[in-house]
């Protein structure tokens, strides 16, 4: 598989699958302002997914559109990080996942602005504006809920313990990442990790949360090996395109 295509496709998948998950909160969040904020952030992710998947389609040169890539691939052909596909859980879980991914995206898109791939650099220039806001918002929540009531502290700690093992995958470099960093398309994931850890550790400590020992790092998304939640997500998302193939909507 074309490595440049695959590099961009993975980012598109992350944005799409996380956006899909976030949109599940629409109309169900703890108060009205959060309904708006969650939908707003979900929309940013879906918008980003559209740009990235369209770009991936041109790199692949099989004339696949953003919708072909989103709706007509099977589970084994999706390459998002597992953390993006996990069910939304309670609001603590949602926000903890969000913060850890937002902090990653902040450093990723900061660097991608100088990518040798001009289209990717332009997408990153837009994405970094959104992500700067996303990480400030989710970071505020981490502090307020981590250092809030006894219950919120317990829930945030549970969420952190639950999701922590999925973060290792964010920085695991394989031949696609090596290709991207050698061509100046994307950053070296190891370098990203240091910046991410510095921010995340500071934030979690300020939120009075205990950083878990990483005893169960889990990965698989990049090989198309997913959690069992992924199939149901795709079944829902792809329903119309699969049931009525080849139509305009």
């Amino acid at each position: 598989m074309n490595k440049h295509f695959q590099y961009v496709l993975r980012m598109g998948d992350n944005a799409l699958i996380l956006g899909q998950r976030m949109s599940e909160w629409c109309g169900h969040s703890p108060f009205l302002e959060e309904d708006i904020a969650m939908a707003n952030c979900a929309l940013d992710h879906v918008g980003r997914a559209r740009m990235l998947l369209t770009h991936a389609g041109t790199l692949e040169d099989k004339r696949r559109t953003e919708d072909d890539l989103a709706f007509l691939r099977d589970e084994r052909e999706f390459f998002n990080f597992l953390i993006c596909e996990l069910p939304i859980g309670d609001y603590a879980f949602t926000l903890m996942r969000q913060y850890l991914v937002d902090a990653y995206h902040f450093h990723l898109y900061s660097r991608l602005q100088t990518s040798s791939d001009g289209v990717l650099a332009a997408i990153a220039a837009k994405a970094i504006k959104e992500t700067t806001y996303h990480v400030r918002r989710s970071g505020d929540w981490i502090i307020k809920l981590g250092d809030g009531s006894d219950e919120s502290h317990r829930r945030m700690q549970d969420a952190l313990d639950e999701v922590w093992g999925y973060t290792g995958e964010l920085f695991a470099a394989d031949e696609v990442d090596d290709f991207a960093s050698s061509k100046g398309i994307g950053p070296d994931p190891h370098a990203l990790r240091l910046d991410w850890e510095r921010d995340v550790f500071d934030k979690l400590r300020a939120a009075t949360l205990r950083i878990p020992e990483e005893i169960w790092p889990i990965s698989g998304g990049r090989q198309g090996v997913h959690t069992e939640a992924m199939g149901a997500l795709l079944a829902e998302m792809q329903f119309l395109q699969r049931s009525y193939p080849g139509l305009n909507w």
Binding site: A39, L43, M237
Partner: peptide
């Protein structure tokens, strides 16, 4: 929203519900 048939429709519907 979860079943919108295209990404454009999904984005529009999300914006509308927001």
């Amino acid at each position: 929203i979860g079943r919108a048939p295209t990404l454009r429709r999904k984005a529009t519907l999300l914006a509308k519900v927001q």
